[in-house]
């Protein structure tokens, strides 16, 4: 339960060793690509490629399956709703009352769904293979102030803790005969009050103690901060980054000079 918020899986692979900045660059590049190319084949090819990367990066299949399980509902929703709300073209496949399903809109729905999946997976490549500390280090290296990075890291770190407190508090109140979420909307909101008050009070105490713990460990002592592990670009990074730059230029030329990649 406690690790439900951390997607990272510790493995030794080229993908894991890659600098988080390189992986961030990959996310940016993928986003630009996917947002500009709406063609079905581009999204499909991209997804295929991503799975290749995950496989060679030793990300366990169970993680990938987990991700797909989370993605299915949204994928289906898009597939189902798109043709209904954006009817395009004339090739009518099916008509029920005033709702027309056309081949074009079906394909459009499919390509949109795959694009959303592909975008999600571009981020997941980063999250599956980068531990949070390195991710934050990468962001700080890219110019995020250290305090912000630390805040982000701490927020991620305490999510499971807060969830744990929430669970305990709700159990404690249930043991006193309290029932969650019964009645109308207002009643329901009100029924969460006994948990929320206790969780917030506990969280505030935690935050107070945390600020003291930070001070006790010399945070903001005025000494210039050093780092145990400096991020350094390795060979793989030095290959990937120029490759990304070239790809970006090629993508943009192909897309805007030659208007390819859109249906």
């Amino acid at each position: 339960m406690s690790f439900a918020f951390d997607l990272y899986v510790d493995r030794s692979s080229w993908l894991h060793r890659l600098d988080p900045r390189t992986k961030l660059a990959f996310v940016v590049l993928s986003s630009i690509l996917l947002l500009n190319y709406s063609h079905l084949l581009v999204s499909a090819a991209f997804l295929l490629g991503i799975h290749g990367i995950l496989w060679s990066g030793k990300v366990p299949a169970s993680r990938v399956r987990w991700a797909w399980q989370r993605m299915w509902p949204i994928t289906f929703l898009i597939l189902f709703l798109w043709p209904i709300f954006y009817p395009q073209g004339n090739e009518v496949l099916l008509q029920v009352w005033r709702v027309r399903i056309t081949t074009q809109s079906l394909l459009q729905g499919l390509s949109t769904a795959l694009r959303v999946d592909a975008l999600a997976f571009a981020f997941l490549v980063l999250l599956f293979s980068t531990d949070q500390a390195r991710l934050v280090r990468g962001l700080v290296k890219l110019g995020l102030p250290y305090e912000w990075g630390l805040t982000l890291a701490i927020a991620l770190r305490y999510l499971p803790t807060l969830y744990g407190i929430y669970t305990t508090v709700s159990e404690a109140q249930q043991a006193r005969g309290w029932v969650i979420g019964k009645g109308g909307f207002i009643q329901r909101i009100k029924s969460y009050l006994p948990i929320l008050v206790a969780v917030i009070v506990t969280a505030l105490r935690l935050a107070d103690n945390l600020s003291m713990a930070l001070a006790a460990r010399g945070f903001q002592s005025g000494t210039r901060r050093t780092y145990l592990r400096e991020l350094k670009l390795g060979l793989a990074d030095k290959i990937c980054l120029p490759l990304f730059a070239v790809s970006l230029i090629v993508f943009l030329i192909v897309r805007f000079r030659h208007s390819l990649g859109v249906p």
Binding site: A133, I154, L156, L214, A216, R217
Partner: peptide, 9 residues
């Protein structure tokens, strides 16, 4: 201990 262990490893 919970509030003074705020790192990932």
């Amino acid at each position: 201990p919970e509030s003074q262990l705020f790192n990932m490893t």
